[in-house]
Computed example of a mutant assay.
Amino acid sequence: MSEEAGNDVVVDPVAGDAAGIVVRGVTRRFGSAEALRGIDLSAPYGQITALVGPNGAGKTTLLLILATLLTPTSGEVRVAGLDPATDPDGVRARMGWMPDALGVYEQLTPREYLTFFAEAYRIDPAAVAGRVTGLLARVHLAEHADQPVHVLSRGQKQRLGLARAMVHEPRVLLLDEPAAGLDPRSRAELRDLLRELAASGVAVLVSSHILSELEELADRVVFVAEGRTVEEDEIAGVARFVVSGWRVRALDDAALTAALTARGVAPLATSAAGSDLPPMSETDAAALLAALVGDDVPVVAFGPIGGQLEAAYLALNKERR
């Protein structure tokens, strides 16, 4: 990886492009139906970009275009600097794809399964065995390496699918609902692995409905709705869309209630998780927290209800109704 002089644009040394994925004005029609109506998106190398939107927003259609499985009706698409419509083989050599519903060869073992795909990508035969063993360890399937795939759980098959997408060491990784079927520990391991891949310079694009996971994982977010890009921003910048409810919990409930009442803040609900406060901006929430601490209220938790990414998603969709 290198950087162009005078700016922070990361350039791939092989393809020479400034972002792993670039999408500009992409449309896609199926007969009279418009699935995409002008999508714009970029996914830089070295970062994880979250693709967020409701069902029917066009996320899967866009991923299929990026994965060379559909062609756009109009617009510009570049994956690792190449056009998937005119150079699908070149894109596939540089891109890893993990769809939401991944079929696997049930009678093979995970080792055989990954070896098959490594050979299909024409990886040096002398390197295949070591690469497959390393991948199985990275996705925590080493102990199941020589068992038939059909005995694996859904979550284990998801991890095998991720290993398959990584077998040729792609520069760009497309993931559609990668955490589906994973238990909490496996989701945490997935986060660590994707962060590791991004740190190594891979451009990762993730589509998921688990917004709390994306908020912890992603560097950037692209909101889409009705086949169009609604907003594209750094994760840290989504707070400007948010006027969300907040939840506060303290060791002394009576002191918390008195302090809130003194400031004219009435909790909407109270439970073991804490007191749910009315919607407010980050600035107002920070001022309220400072006031509570100044009143010697022993606050142990204070944060937005549901997370900022979820709140921003709901706010943007509300604006479009």
Rank of each mutant, 00 (worst) to 15 (best):
D219P: 07
R185A: 04
A250V: 05
D253P: 03
R28N: 13
L66F: 14
V204P: 02
Q308F: 05
G161N: 02
G103Y: 14
V243T: 15
R138K: 05
G264L: 04
G130I: 07
L63S: 08
F223R: 09
V224T: 10
T68E: 09
G201F: 01
G103K: 09
L69D: 14
S275Q: 15
R138Q: 15
L194C: 05
P178N: 13
L160S: 03
D83H: 02
P278W: 09
R187P: 00
Q107F: 15
Y113A: 06
L190S: 03
L256H: 08
I39R: 03
A311P: 09
R320S: 04
L260M: 00
E76S: 11
D192V: 10
V297W: 00
D176N: 06
D276R: 14
V132P: 07
V26H: 13
T68A: 00
R195L: 04
L173M: 10
M95I: 01
M95N: 01
L175Q: 02
T109D: 04
L62C: 13
D8T: 09
V9Y: 09
A50K: 13
L182A: 00
A225H: 13
F241M: 07
D40C: 14
R191C: 08
D8R: 10
D284L: 11
E226A: 07
G81M: 08
Q147V: 15
E4C: 03
P148C: 03
R249A: 09
V22P: 00
S32M: 07
G75H: 06
D12I: 10
T61R: 11
G81A: 10
G6V: 06
P54N: 06
P304Y: 09
L152K: 07
T71N: 14
L277Q: 03
P125K: 06
V22T: 15
D276Y: 11
L197A: 04
D296I: 06
R321H: 05
S271V: 07
V79N: 02
D124M: 10
P99T: 10
E196P: 08
D233W: 01
D233L: 04
A269N: 14
L82W: 02
S200W: 12
V91F: 01
Y113T: 07
A301K: 10
S42F: 04
I48E: 05
V238F: 04
A254L: 13
L251W: 12
L162R: 12
M280N: 13
R320A: 01
G38Q: 12
R171L: 03
F223H: 03
V79Q: 03
L197P: 04
S42G: 00
G274L: 00
V14T: 14
A315P: 02
A287I: 05
V172S: 02
S2M: 00
G134W: 14
D252R: 06
A312M: 08
D8F: 08
S281C: 07
A163F: 07
H168P: 03
A259W: 02
V132C: 09
L251A: 12
P278F: 12
L288Y: 15
A225L: 00
L217T: 07
V222D: 08
R164W: 04
L66N: 13
E34Q: 14
P44S: 07
V11G: 01
Q47D: 01
A43H: 06
M95K: 03
L64H: 15
D176L: 12
Q156V: 01
G75P: 10
T133G: 10
R24S: 13
